[in-house]
Amino acid sequence: MRNEKVIDRSAYKKPVKANRLFTFSRKQLCIPYGLFLVMFVVIPLLLIVYFAFTGEDGSFTFSNFIRFFSDTTKLSTLFISVLVALAVTVICLIVAYPVALILSKMKGNVAMIFLLLFITPMWINFVLRAMAMKELLSLLSLPLGNMANLIGLTYDFLPFMIMPLYSTLIKMDRSLEEAAHDLGAGKVKVFTKVTLPLSVPGIISGAMMVFLPVMSCYVVTDTFSGSTGFTVIGKLIAWSFLGEGGTLADIHGGATISLVMLIIMFVTMIATGGFKNENNARGTNL
């Protein structure tokens, strides 16, 4: 005998949705950012690509690139920019590492105060800082030029190197250093075999936060170059678009340099593993 029970299916019906014109969900929170991204990143990017590959008449051409790579002044500016950026990065690293190391070993409030001392420059306007440094240099009767440029850039970008290094070092498990010490390593070996290799993510993010912006940051070099007229590639881009510095406004040329820069940065990022998720030790947590 079967028990033929009639089940009232209507009871299982989904509740009727409230008849509203617009239901809000969490996904919609990204709309403002999406719009922003499209307007200020995607469209300009597409415009750069479009202008870089078109001529005055709007037809597709490689001539802009040919022009750029055959212009020795532009190429040498690019080359020197990379060189200066490298030099500044290395100097910053050499200065910042001991600072970050000492800060990370300090205890309690003292560490906090010193850390603040080192990173407050980050909160002061870039140009203001550059101007202040310039005055300081003239007070020390140091002439403007390449040396002043290096000092100024290092001073301006140092906090961006200290922060990622500090946050990597502070997170490091102290028992790893103790373990190395325990296994027979002296103080120097503990540093070279454990502390240094484990802080590589911090070094990479610090280096990228210094190296890439230095190449385009012409405000600082303008301040410190003086009569040498030295400039970074970023300035060339600005000139091309604005038609300053004795050149005619050339949107296509400017777009080409921008694209070349973009590719260089992209390649550096990939080479240093900057896209990997584990290297998230950026100095953004302060």
Partner: peptide, 20 residues
Amino acid sequence: LPPNQRPINTVFQRYALFPH
């Protein structure tokens, strides 16, 4: 004596293996 000069080795609480 510092730890590296003692003929003593330690197994740490959270192992402290070198991740790199």
